[in-house]
Design a protein around this nucleic acid. Sequence first.
DNA 1: TGATATTGACACTGCGGCGTATCAGATGCA
DNA 2: TGCATCTGATACGCCGCAGTGTCAATATCA
Lengths: 223, 223
Amino acid sequence: MSPGQQTTPPTARTTTGRTYRGADRRQRQDERRARLMEAGIETFGTIGYRNATVDRVCAAAGLTKRYFYESFDDSEELLLAVYGRVAEELHTRIVADAEAAAPDIEAQVRAALTALFRTIGDDPRLARIAFVEILAVSGTVDSAWQAVNTAFVDTILQLTQPYLDAADLSETDLEILATGVLGAVVLIAQRWILGERAQPIEALVSNAHTLVMAVVSRVAALD
Amino acid sequence: MSPGQQTTPPTARTTTGRTYRGADRRQRQDERRARLMEAGIETFGTIGYRNATVDRVCAAAGLTKRYFYESFDDSEELLLAVYGRVAEELHTRIVADAEAAAPDIEAQVRAALTALFRTIGDDPRLARIAFVEILAVSGTVDSAWQAVNTAFVDTILQLTQPYLDAADLSETDLEILATGVLGAVVLIAQRWILGERAQPIEALVSNAHTLVMAVVSRVAALD
DNA sequence: TGATATTGACACTGCGGCGTATCAGATGCA
DNA sequence: TGCATCTGATACGCCGCAGTGTCAATATCA
């Protein structure tokens, strides 16, 4: 487990590196990685993952390939990292606003939808990455997409949990329904972004709200 | 408009060609095109458009590149042709079954959903092409996807038209709602395909039906 | 100030796919 | 049967990108 001996402490110190422009090795590396992530959002979110080459991302980051491979094995790894961050940001904002509007379920749904459409309206790159570019890349990326969807489905179920207790639906049924609700919102968002964002946000929120509440009411009321 | 003169009728006859293996030029070309389309469905629907090269499609068709370029300019053109056919097939089946179940709206919705999930269950390649591979390819392909979505949204609105007359919703509102309904079904289908098709078709149909009818009822009843 | 680490620009190799061209063999026509 | 067409296999040139290597310029430390 330890073929390498500590005979060369000076060499070992190389790992730490020296400070440069006021930042130590780790800080510089982290900053470069952050710039690459931002460049990934910009590149994937505008020209698309398919047209994004390592060189293009590096140009957007103002760095060279050398530092790309310092932080990522390949562009797919950057995509996964970027996607993870985008999905987390969307999730965080939606949940935060929804919880702030508790306990009124209608207000919560409205807050969640408003948070979503506002966020992607302010930065359509996020929507393109989260809802479009992430699909059909590779099995690994598909898995990540599945995982994120599962997380959102779970969140939907948690938020509506208090209102679904009476429903005698199986866990599977609830998951399918929540998947449907998620899909409804996603497609509305997709078409809004890929079109010219013709409709005002209020119309999106209002109709998505109608749809979601129709489902929640129906399920809560049984039938 | 006519720099070329008809000075060479024999050459012009070349266009007609000679029969070969019992088929004339046009028939052979059509048959090759059909084989390429089928190979496109197989290739795009299994390994995906991203991994599909012209050579691979040709190998699947049992033809060489020469005949690929006889019928298509590039692989994107084949994708568009394949997508058009797949979308049309789905649309045709769904509408046919839905209309056969008229005039009971509940039965129509159930028939439409059953037709969809049956079709993609029998041939998951269609679902992969229609719902996954088609996204994030190019602006042209995006437009085709938008057009197909619009067609499905219109179909949903037509099918539910009799029940929405009373609703005082604008055209825009109805389109957004129909988009949501479509998205719900699509995401349920996507997750079903990308997962291991764990749930039985009946569960998908049943829950999608619940969701769709919840929306239709809510809209029809006003509120 | 000199030695060393760090940076950025760029050259280089290798791979894989696209689109075209070539050619020998098979098929149909006169 | 001989000639023209069609077919299929394969070769070829080209280009773009991935990933690595080189080197001079710059910043830090002793």
